[in-house]
């Protein structure tokens, strides 16, 4: 019988997916319901905002932004 699972489909590239899985691993698997393929995962609907926030933080730590030239 077919089953329907409520959740949020998150589409991202493989590198971001690795980070998301990493966040999930470190937080007792409370975000991800299922990993579908290289670029898609299913996340608990209520946790999406928090997961995005954590991803932002992680990116800020890991990626160095080049100074933007903002001259007028």
């Amino acid at each position: 019988m077919v089953k329907a699972v409520r959740g949020t489909l998150v589409k991202c590239d493989a590198s971001v997916k690795a980070m998301l899985v990493d966040i999930d691993d470190k937080n007792g698997h409370e975000f991800i319901i299922d990993e579908l393929d290289e670029e898609h995962i299913i996340v608990k609907e209520t946790k999406v905002a928090e997961l995005k926030q954590r991803l932002q933080n992680m990116m800020k730590e890991r990626l160095k932004e080049p100074e933007s030239s903002d001259s007028e």
Partner: peptide, 22 residues
């Protein structure tokens, strides 16, 4: 970096034709 859509994942289809149909 991510694109999200709320909805439902349908899984555990018994047969290929059932899946194709839906």
């Amino acid at each position: 970096r991510v694109e999200t859509t709320n909805g439902f994942l349908m899984k555990e289809f018994a047969t290929e034709s059932e899946y194709r149909d839906l």
